[in-house]
Simulated assay, not measured.
Amino acid sequence: MLYFDHCATTPPYEEVIEAVGEVMGKHYGNPSSIHKLGIDAERMLTKARDLIARLLQTSPDEIVFTSGGTESNNLAVLGAALQYGARGKHLITTAIEHASVYETFQYLERAGYEVTYVMPDGTGKVSAQSVLEAVRDDTMLVSVMHVNNEIGTIQPIEQIGRALQQNRRVLFHVDAVQSVGKIPVHPKQWGIDLLSASAHKIRGPRGAGLLYRRNGIQLQPVLIGGGQEGGLRSGTENVPGIVGFAKAFRMTMERREEAADRMAGLRSRLLSHINNISGLVYNGSERQTDMAPHIVHFSAPGIKSEVFVHALEEHDIYISTKSACSSGEDRPSRVLLALGADHSRASSGLRVSFSADHTPEQIDKLALAMESTLQQLRRYR
Rank of each mutant, 00 (worst) to 15 (best):
L56E: 10
T66R: 04
H90N: 14
L55I: 15
V77N: 15
F105S: 12
H90M: 09
I52F: 04
G68H: 07
S67C: 08
S59N: 14
S67T: 13
Q57M: 14
K47C: 12
L78H: 07
F65Q: 05
A80I: 02
F65L: 08
H90L: 08
A86R: 11
S100Y: 00
I39H: 09
L51E: 10
H90P: 06
L108N: 05
N73F: 01
T58K: 02
Q83K: 15
T58Q: 02
R54Q: 13
H90V: 09
T46Y: 05
T66Q: 02
A86W: 04
H98V: 08
R43N: 14
Y107W: 08
A95W: 01
Y102G: 11
Q83S: 14
A81N: 00
N74L: 01
G85N: 04
H90K: 14
A76I: 02
E42S: 13
A99I: 04
E109V: 03
A111M: 07
L37M: 14
E114Y: 03
Y107P: 00
V64L: 09
T46C: 06
S59W: 04
A53M: 00
K89R: 15
L51K: 07
R49T: 06
T70A: 14
E97V: 03
I39Y: 07
T46S: 14
L108I: 02
E103G: 00
I39S: 11
H35L: 11
A81R: 02
F65K: 04
A111R: 11
V77L: 07
